[in-house]
């Protein structure tokens, strides 16, 4: 147990070094689907944060009772329950947002990120560590979504959080808010992150 990362390490790792989207390439479905404007991206990041935190805490509380061949079933059950709760709360209090995000909220259930964190961290470490891991990974996920959404919304509509930031004369690059724009933006940003990583690794080694 001594060589497992501490709570603080888990938290820091989740934000940039083990960023779920840019480094681990997990959870790409919502990343591409909801990032055509900032509001959707932030709502999705918050939903994932809620589900990840709750699932991690619950799994961590029962970690000593998990049987090896039934643990995936338990992970799935827990995650599906919290996703249903998140979906219902959104439909009740943010109805327009719930309609805009559509089927992508329930798709959080099959988001590899959450099952991965449950498996790697929550089922092995204490509640505090699991919680800080969840928060760290959620912040990382939120940052990744926000970066992509910022590019897509500003270039595609000239607005940021529905506030006009580019001059009205800007010819909207409509392609950015359509599916191809999502792929291209993520691909280019991923390349950029890899470039920065390789430069840093080159300087160290």
């Amino acid at each position: 147990m001594a060589d497992q990362p501490t709570a603080l390490e888990r938290f820091v790792q989740g934000i940039l070094p083990e960023n779920p989207v840019y480094r681990q390439l997990l959870g790409l479905c919502p990343t591409l689907a909801v990032t055509n404007n900032m509001v959707s991206a932030v709502t999705m990041a918050c939903s994932v944060a809620f589900v990840l935190l709750c699932a991690n805490v619950v799994i961590s509380l029962i970690r000593n009772l998990l049987k090896p061949h039934l643990r995936i079933v338990i992970f799935t059950l827990t995650i599906a329950t919290f996703v249903t709760i998140a979906d219902r709360v959104l439909a009740a209090y943010l109805y327009q947002m719930s309609k805009a995000l559509g089927p992508y909220i329930p798709l959080i259930i099959v988001n590899c990120l959450i099952i991965c964190r449950c498996e790697v961290c929550a089922s092995r470490q204490s509640v505090v560590t699991a919680a800080s891991d969840a928060i760290g990974q959620s912040i990382g996920f939120g940052l990744a979504l926000a970066s992509i959404a910022a590019v897509r919304e500003i270039l595609g509509t000239g607005m940021f959080f529905n506030i006009q930031v580019l001059p009205v004369a800007w010819p909207d690059w409509v392609i950015m808010v359509l599916p191809p724009g999502a792929f291209l933006t993520l691909g280019l940003l991923l390349g950029l992150v890899n470039f920065v990583e390789q430069k840093r690794a080159g300087r160290k080694g």
Partner: peptide
């Protein structure tokens, strides 16, 4: 393929052109 783009990045960019 340039080194930073090898792997997932170039796949996504090609995927974007396919989507187009």
């Amino acid at each position: 393929v340039p080194k930073p783009f090898q792997g997932a990045a170039i796949t996504l960019i090609v995927g974007g052109i396919l989507a187009l």
